[in-house]
């Protein structure tokens, strides 16, 4: 490691890297996502102990363990509820949530809408690989129609969930998409997402190297991806964002799809406000029973 001091003793990407070695398959898209997260966190500059990083179950849900933040690799589909509890309990924390498409849009799909409508200040990163990797290649909620897997021997008969449209429709105030094919771009949208006050969502097209064909790997994405800047997208226009989101599964747009120009107050901020307002009415805890006295 270089011994030359940096100009400002700022946190660097490596400060967020834990000693634990990823067990992902070589070539997995999640390696790039992890790098992007390190760099986004370096950009944010909050020390690791002020960060809570929650995940569910799946290959990608291993990710908190590869950071130096406080991590919680919880149970399948429940990362968002747990993260919201953490944020409400300690609003001063930076709360990140990560997981796969199955975690977020299948078993835990019911939680996404509610995290969005609460507009709680956390960043949700979904590593969307359109497959169940950890259980060996079954259909996922974002698998394209017709995909042949071990649970769709003759091809999937179901249309996929469109994660981008889903979160836009529920009113998410920040929605972006990225790919490890463009790590700088991905780090950038993750950092923007974290900086955005309120619920922010980043869908990462992070291919599965083991259960998806070569033409869908990171290298192939590099030729296919289209930055939203290059198509002149106005990221303050939710309807325009929804229009572009319709192409999910066909066109790989990267960048910020939607960013609310006038975001609503966050739930955690409102909670703090209420706590402050009502604090004066508190009787001491040891006298709480007085309210039951028939006086």
């Amino acid at each position: 490691m270089s011994s030359i001091p940096v100009e400002r003793p700022a946190l660097q990407a490596k400060d967020f890297k834990s000693d634990l070695k990823p067990i992902w398959c070589p070539g997995c898209g999640d390696f790039g996502v992890l790098q992007a997260i390190y760099r986004a966190l370096a950009g944010i500059g909050r020390p690791p102990h002020e960060i809570a990083f929650v995940s569910g179950i799946g290959c990608s849900s291993r990710i908190p363990g590869y950071t130096t933040a406080y991590g919680f690799n919880s149970v399948h589909g429940r990362a968002l509820p747990i993260a919201q509890g953490i944020k409400l309990a300690r609003p001063e924390l930076l709360v990140l949530v990560a997981g796969g498409d199955g975690d977020g849009f299948s078993i835990g799909g019911g939680h996404v809408a509610h995290a969005i409508r609460r507009n709680i200040d956390l960043t949700y990163i979904v590593m969307d690989n359109q497959i169940y990797g950890l259980t060996k290649g079954q259909l996922s909620p974002t698998s394209p129609r017709g995909l042949k897997t071990v649970t769709s021997e003759y091809g999937s008969l179901e249309a996929p969930v469109n994660p981008l449209l889903y979160v836009l429709a529920y009113g998410a105030s920040f929605v972006a998409q990225g790919t490890p094919a463009d790590m700088a771009g991905l780090a950038d949208v993750i950092e923007q997402a974290i900086r955005h006050p309120g619920f922010s969502f980043v869908n990462v097209q992070s291919p599965c190297v083991t259960f998806a064909p070569e033409d869908q790997q990171v290298k192939a994405q590099r030729g296919r991806m289209k930055t939203l800047a290059s198509v002149g997208h106005d990221s303050t226009n939710r309807l325009a964002a929804m229009g572009l989101a319709q192409t999910y599964g066909e066109v790989l747009y990267t960048g910020v799809l939607y960013k609310d120009p006038a975001p609503q107050p966050t739930l955690d901020a409102l909670v703090r406000e209420r706590q402050a307002k009502l604090a004066l009415e508190a009787v001491p805890r040891e006298r709480i029973l007085d309210m039951f006295l028939q006086k």
Binding site: A52, V54, F72, S74, R78, L80, P81, I82, A83, Q84, G85, I86, K87, L88, A89, R90, L93
Partner: peptide, 10 residues
Amino acid sequence: GAALGASFAG
């Protein structure tokens, strides 16, 4: 889940 998250947060 939220309650457990709060407990994790101390």
